[in-house]
């Protein structure tokens, strides 16, 4: 059974038809990378997976359960986490509080359990020494690694990444990618919107290319590097591969 399933998903913002009958399945443990030009609907696709956007029509299934406006809080809490382009750490809390808030308030962990968990994941992202600082005092790369640790603290089966390195200074991109590569060795299901083709090549099981609200090509990273079918994909890759 697919971990994430989008079935005939359509999304419109007013008159703007952004997703056009998108069908997509992501298996448990799969690493899926979504690429495509700006405005093609990549973010909207990922945001439908945790109902930050509710589809205008169609169905979204998470781990077999249909996601609805009624059950989204519960399903999202149990099964998905998200890492944003702009990090979205809570600026009024220390790093440690950022990491322990959801485990304590939503997952019924004791303070001690939550902090152990937090230090475990801070160690994984290499920022154990930053537990007691406020996020705004950190560099972008560090903030994003903290955001990844926060997502991991929910211990959900799915992590969604929406352009996690696009807001970063070039010199801090690699430290975030390294953490994600490390993460990809686990059985966690990852959906990553990114233009980092090196990363895609290294970790993706499958890459999909979106244009104008549709998935127009899908395949392994090698397929995309060696012989993509569509002219449009060739053009696009030619532009973004440095």
């Amino acid at each position: 059974m697919a971990m994430i399933k989008l079935e005939n998903v359509n999304k419109s913002f007013g008159d703007l038809h952004v997703l056009k009958d998108v069908n997509l399945e992501v298996e448990e443990g799969e690493k899926l990378v979504i690429i495509g030009p700006s405005g093609s609907g990549k973010s909207t696709t990922v945001r439908c997976m945790n109902f930050l956007e509710a589809p205008s029509s169609g169905h979204v299934y998470i781990d077999g359960t249909e996601l609805t406006s009624k059950n989204k809080t519960k399903v999202v809490r149990e099964s998905t986490s998200m890492v944003f382009q702009q990090f979205n750490l809570y600026p009024h809390m220390t790093v440690l509080k950022n990491l322990t808030l959801a485990p304590m308030k939503l997952h019924h962990k004791s303070k001690k359990e939550a902090e152990e968990l937090a230090y475990h994941y801070l160690d994984i992202v290499g920022l154990k020494d930053k537990a007691d600082v406020y996020p705004t005092t950190l560099s972008g790369g560090q903030q994003q690694r903290i955001a990844i640790a926060r997502a991991l603290c929910s211990q959900s089966k799915i992590i969604l990444f929406d352009e996690p390195t696009s807001a970063l200074d070039p010199e801090t991109i690699q430290e975030v990618l390294d953490v994600m590569i490390k993460l990809a060795k686990e059985n966690i299901t990852m959906v990553v919107v990114t233009h980092e083709m090196g990363f895609a090549r290294q970790v993706a099981d499958r890459v999909i290319f979106m244009e104008d609200g549709q998935i127009i090509e899908s395949g392994t990273p090698e397929h995309f590097f060696n012989n993509p079918e569509s002219e449009r994909v060739k053009q696009f890759l030619g532009k973004i591969i440095r």
Binding site: N50, L52, T73, K74, V76, R77, E78, T80, S81, M82, F84, Q86, N88, L89, Y90, P91, H92, L101, A102, K105, L106, R150, S154, L160
Partner: peptide, 27 residues
């Protein structure tokens, strides 16, 4: 409060009251 704060809270599974109480009102 930036929209991203509401989204981060929702993506963690906070309901309306939790979002407001822990994340939005303090800011």
């Amino acid at each position: 409060v930036p929209k991203g704060q509401f989204e981060a809270a929702q993506s963690q599974g906070f309901g309306y009251a939790g979002q407001m109480f822990y994340i939005i009102i303090p800011q």
